[in-house]
Design a binder for these strands. Structure first.
Length: 221
DNA sequence: TAGGCCATCTGGTCCT
DNA sequence: AGGACCAGATGGCCTA
């Protein structure tokens, strides 16, 4: 269960992926080794770590490479002629335009990844070098659930304020459901108190329902 | 080795 | 026309 161990114990408890029922995991290689490096020799082409770059990418990314046309043609043949960038352009112009489009797309994806990194930075899970980075899908799902939890916390807070404004003291219970101060324990998705659940990995401890992200969900404790 | 996750390339579509 | 966005294809790396 390394996937879930890679997160703080309860990080996944509210996580589920019901749309397709797929069991996503957070298992990943050490992301620190990836990163996005400085621009490569091709100008604005980022120097993606060679270890992650497909061979064809390496060839076609280097604008100065003598093999790039071969690679381009190979890919074009593989995919069939299709509609090239602009059939009225000369091949050299086509190639140049294609490279520019590729670079733009690469930048766009890097921006997207930067935004995801920003999201990872603000959602609560164990951030440490020994913990794998959340996958993209896990990041989005966790963020969604975190937002929902925060909204719920806000609502609890409003109820508490309204209650206090009616002249009641803090000593009295606010609602039928017992609340720890400010109701946080009831709404915070990763509280240590939510350690009991049907899943051996405690992933369903908070939501009370098995997480599709946890392979151990449904197993007998 | 299979499965998960990812980066990149590519063609298509829509928008400005 | 050019840029942004999207989805499919491909191949590499990592882990169980």
């Amino acid at each position: 269960m390394a996937e879930l161990k890679s997160l703080s114990g309860d990080a996944y408890l509210a996580l589920s992926y019901t749309a397709t029922g797929h069991a996503y995991t957070a298992a990943r290689g050490p992301e620190t080794a990836r990163g996005f490096g400085a621009s490569g020799p091709g100008g604005d082409l980022p120097a993606a770590p060679a270890s992650r770059v497909p061979a064809a990418t390496v060839e076609s990314s280097g604008e100065q490479s003598g093999d790039e046309d071969d690679t381009f043609e190979r890919r074009r043949r593989r995919r069939g002629p299709g509609v090239s960038v602009d059939t009225r352009r000369r091949p050299r112009e086509q190639r140049s335009l294609r490279l520019s489009i590729n670079a733009r797309e690469r930048r766009r994806m890097h921006d997207l990844n930067d935004a995801l990194d920003g999201l990872r930075a603000v959602i609560p899970y164990a951030h440490s070098p020994s913990v794998r980075k959340l996958s993209k899908i896990a990041t989005l799902l966790l963020a969604k659930n975190y937002i929902l939890m925060q909204a719920q916390a806000l609502e609890e807070m409003r109820r508490l304020v309204a209650y206090l404004n009616q002249g009641h003291g803090l000593a009295a219970p606010v609602a039928a459901t017992p609340l720890t101060p400010f109701g946080q324990a009831a709404v915070y998705p990763f509280s240590a108190g939510a350690a009991l659940g049907p899943c051996p990995d405690k992933c369903a401890a908070f939501s009370g329902s098995p997480s599709a992200l946890c392979k151990h969900c449904g197993e007998k404790p």
